[in-house]
């Protein structure tokens, strides 16, 4: 296999700080206590869901900056994204924080793609502090992709629940004692003909498996090298499929394999297949994983964020759901 789309960072940029904010429903999450800020109101006191979405992102950025004793004017780049049309929530958040900004869209994989971009900018010495992350807001996203929020349609067990959360990381040149970004893999768009937007896990699983294999072969790594291999938001159904697909390719699937979407709300059946959304992977990767790395529990982790690159129009016109997965490898030395 030709090694394409592989990134290796010689300077190993570090994730110096994280900021994670979440909505009130996310108190039910198993990781709720690790979030920096949990709002009491799902609109964060704003007028519309979209404003709340922007506010959440903005607060996450400010929290991350304050943790590295910085103000927005100290940061060089802002690389964030979300799922809403033209990424207006991120745009408005960028307007408020006033950091030079590029909006990134890889659907729910934005959490990792933005980290990779930030690491690249740091690697080439153009950035001393780059803010990277992603967010999603349940009401705003559901409204755009599915039905109105209060509509009483029955969702199948394969459906996932978009989380209300924003997670950003401050990426700086290598800092001792902080998780650093060693390498990454940019995913290919994989589409195995899934068309059901209420079963996104199944659509995204092949992309995740593909990126996993490309990362392992491309960087000459083995599953044994990692303490945890975490996927973004495959949910219960997607995660099962992903494990089968990976197993078919000769990968030994162990307990190291975890999925943020599946674990986000625990075993609560009300959330059906689990969590999804750009905020889901961002929030879990930047709390649970980073915290454990800093505590020394994890030495080397592989994070694979998956995204379904569909639009409401594309699936209504009967198109399949193209999916992408980006991988990033973090180490703690």
């Amino acid at each position: 296999m030709v090694a394409r789309g592989l990134l290796t960072f010689k300077t190993t940029p570090s994730i110096a700080a994280t900021g994670v904010t979440a909505g009130p429903l996310e108190k039910k999450s198993l990781f709720a206590e690790k979030f920096d800020k949990v709002y009491e109101d799902e609109r964060c006191g704003m007028k519309t869901n979209e404003h709340a979405h922007a506010k959440m992102m903005e607060d996450a950025c400010m929290i991350a900056l304050s943790k590295v004793d910085s103000v927005p004017s100290d940061a060089d780049f802002l690389l964030i994204g979300d799922l809403i049309n033209q990424m207006t929530p991120s745009n408005f958040a960028a307007k408020t924080v006033g950091i030079p900004y590029i909006g990134l869209f890889s659907a729910c994989a934005t959490s990792v793609s933005s980290l990779l971009m930030a690491a690249l900018l740091t690697e080439i010495g153009m950035s001393k502090c780059a803010i990277a992350g992603a967010s999603s807001q349940h009401n705003a996203v559901e409204r755009q992709f599915r039905y109105p929020n209060e509509y009483g349609g029955q969702k199948p067990d394969t459906a996932q629940w978009t989380v209300t959360a924003a997670g950003v990381a401050a990426v700086t040149p290598h800092k001792k004692g902080f998780p650093s970004i060693e390498c990454g893999t940019i995913g290919c768009v994989i589409d195995l003909g899934m068309t059901d937007p209420l079963n996104m896990g199944a659509a995204m699983a092949p992309a995740a498996a593909d990126t996993l294999i490309r990362h392992l072969t491309g960087h000459n790594k083995d599953v044994k090298d990692y303490d945890v291999i975490m996927t973004g938001d495959l949910g219960k159904t997607g995660f099962e499929l992903y494990k089968i697909l990976a197993g078919n390719q000769g990968i030994v699937v162990t307990k190291k394999f975890r999925d943020a979407g599946e674990e986000f709300y625990g075993a609560d059946a009300a959330f059906l297949s689990g969590a999804s959304g750009a905020g889901c992977s961002a929030a879990i990767f930047l709390t649970e994983v980073i915290d454990k790395m800093r505590a020394g529990d994890y030495k080397r982790v592989l994070l694979i964020a998956t995204g379904a690159l569909l639009s409401p129009l594309s699936f209504q016109q009967g198109d399949t759901i193209p999916c992408i997965a980006h991988a990033i490898e973090l180490t703690m030395k």
């Binding site: 067990d157 394969t158 195995l192 003909g193 899934m194 079963n199 199944a202 159904t237 499929l241 089968i244």
Partner: peptide, 18 residues
């Protein structure tokens, strides 16, 4: 893995509609 095979796999692993 082609689309047909995957569709079958997906059908087998996804929870059945009760």
């Amino acid at each position: 893995m082609d689309e047909k095979k995957y569709a079958k796999l997906e059908k087998d692993t996804s929870p059945k509609t009760p």
